[in-house]
Amino acid sequence: MSAPFPHRHLLGIEPLAAEHIVALLDTAETMREVLGRPIKKVPTLRGRSVVNLFYEASTRTRSSFEMAERVLSADSLSIATATSSVQKGETLLDTAKNLEAMNPDMIIMRHGSSGAPHFLARHCKASIVNAGDGAHEHPTQALLDALTLRQKKGRIEGLKVAIVGDVVHSRVARSNALLLTKLGARPILCGPPPLLPIGVEQYAPVTTRIDEAIEGADAIMMLRLQRERMSGAFLPSTREYHTLYGLTVERVKKAKPDVIILHPGPMNRGVEIASEVADGPYSVILDQVTNGVAVRMAVLYLLLGGGGGEA
């Protein structure tokens, strides 16, 4: 009998088999029940220590990881690199070795460079969770999106999901396209040509016309325009982007009547998504946040179970 979840690290969606993704989602479903209790705390991970190492700004991801750690009774330590020795020029390996010396059970890491968590996994004994690495992967975001989809639609298989916006800078797009394909959905990537990287067709079909992507979609995932990563002239203006690719009430009408709209946050209102859409009835953006805590609890629980296998 194979282990229900044989991984020790969560570095991306790519190494996961469909059955392990389903095990994570099922576990997350039971964790949601814990979040609804009068006492939102279970003793499951008592005495386990978790380090949150965030080299990039984050509100939702970090706070929901911290919440998940507290609910499961793990001891956690959050390091914001803005106030740490990273500012004094310490290398990633030195930081990791020093953290390792404190013997944590798990390190949750966000980093601006793709592959940084993989590097950490090679040098540390602790379980490593990728909380977003460069433009590579953001597995927990894809998992919480999948959980939200499954709750609202009752299934994932066969759904048409439009992933629209700044694909080139988006780790969320990549993880989501991988996960949806593994679970039998039909993701379609959409964005202006400068924001569609070469070779992205290997993940999902691609289009540059938003109306084509949205036509008959069961769900629309809007991606944030990551202006902080745009050093060159990617777009003439955000206003033009909104006209051509922004999700407006008019455009939503082309999708299925029961379409749901997801956004990983933080939203640029009036750029990739109109406020009326973000606050509209088909928006599940706040459900995503609740599910984010449940998914991260499932990740902590299953990874710290020490499945024994390699990442």
Binding site: A3, P4, F5, P6, A23, D26, T27, E29, T30, M31, E33, V34, V42, P43, T44, L45, G47, L72, Y301, L302, L304, G305, G306, G307, G308
Partner: peptide, 22 residues
């Protein structure tokens, strides 16, 4: 589902899957 309250979670690997409390 008492899985999250087991006293042997530090010794059993892999962690058993949870089935939910209602």
């Amino acid at each position: 589902d008492i899985t999250l309250y087991r006293d042997d979670l530090t010794t059993i690997a892999p962690h058993p899957l949870t089935r939910g409390t209602a």
